[in-house]
Amino acid sequence: MDNITLGRYIPLDSPVHRLDPRAKIGAMLLMLIAIFIPAGWIGYAIIFAVVTFMVFLSKLSFTYIWKSMKPMLFMLVFLLIINVLVVHTGTVWLELGPIKVYSDAVIQTLYIVVRLLLMIMITTCLTATTKPLDMTLGIEDLLQPFEKIGVPSHEIAMLISIALRFIPDLIDETGRIMKAQESRGVDLKEGKLNEKIMAILSLIVPLFVSAFQRAEDLANAMEARGYQPGVRRTRYKVLKLKGPDYLLLAGAVLVLACMIWLAYFK
């Protein structure tokens, strides 16, 4: 359970950590769009260079990034196999008995791999350097314009931030319940189907019971401290864009423009 690294906030002090979450979310979206513009290998090289620079600035270790990508490896192998079986264009590079490996199959897989890799690096740059609460504040602010068409941006942000707040607690709880049931002879790895169903039930029912208890406690605590949903409240954390934030956004726009130029105007 404690090996999950993907999407976790890493408390460090770096220029990237100090950036405004709105700027980071905005830049991330721009970069994600950039990835999907078919700008060829030169384009990917540019994006890769920019993202590597960001990882370096954020003081995250590259082994950490590598670790967060590991779970994807299996998926990539799977993708390669599918592509090899399905794609039959280009030149034949390799013949394995009845299976012919075409160049396009390999190249297409590589494209996907590179895209995925970049996507993970970019999102990690955001999630690892932005406190969950700052993230929700950013989302709240970005959703503000949609309030007029009935999007309850504040409630959404509150919901997300509470969910985020309780994820570590629920992970702990899951671990505890698992251990308690294992102590009662539950085998989560082996066993017949009906035993497996029982095992899963013995985990899920207590988790629900405890989650409901938590929700009730939390609702009481929030109400007791004067929270009324839908009523105006002031906000402690006010976000303000500063020089580096504009720089980041400008950089992201530049990268995107660069990709568009490479893809359509060169």
């Binding site: 505890r176 319940i177 308690a180 102590s183 009662r184 013995s202 029912v205 207590p206 019971v209 405890s210």
Partner: peptide
């Protein structure tokens, strides 16, 4: 036999 803290959370 191991009884955890707040073992009531294992009832299902």
């Amino acid at each position: 036999g191991l009884v955890f803290q707040f073992p009531e959370y294992q009832l299902f």
